[in-house]
Design a protein around this nucleic acid. Sequence first.
DNA 1: GCATTGACGAAGG
DNA 2: CCCTTCGCCAATG
Length: 123
Amino acid sequence: MAKTSKALSNKEPKTYTFFEDVYEVVRQIPKGRATSYGAIANYLGTKLSARMVGWAMNAAHNTIPKVPAQRVVNRNGMLTGKMHFETPTYMQELLEKEGLIIEKDTIKNFDKIFWDPAKELAL
DNA sequence: GCATTGACGAAGG
DNA sequence: CCCTTCGCCAATG
C-alpha cells in the first residue's frame, strides 16, 4: 500500500496506488465532516509529506466518481484548494450544503467536525 | 539532470 | 502573534 509511483514505474503510470488510497479515504469522509491533508497523509503513513496528498487531489479531478475534495482542507480548516474547483466558490457552497459553516474561507468549528481517518478508520 | 514549484505542516524568530 | 524557513516527495520546466 501507498507505494510510490517510482516503485511501479513499469510503463503503466496509471497504477498510482498513492493517489487511489487518497481518493478512497476522501470518499469515506462522512457528510458534514472534514479532514486535513496531514491527517490523510498520516493515515497513509506519509505524514511527513502532506503535500503529496494535495498533489494527489490535483489529479482527482479526473477520477470517477468525483472525489469530494471539498471535505479536505489544510490543518487550519481553511479552504486553500477552492481555487482548484470549477469555480472558487463551488467548494464553499458544497460544504455549506452539507451543513458546515464557512467563515472567511475557513470552516467554523473545524476541530469539532474534524474527521481523522487514522482514528475513525483506525484498524 | 538540476532548479523550481506546490490543494501542507511544524518549528523558529 | 505574525512572518519566514525548512522538510518532504513528485511533477514540470
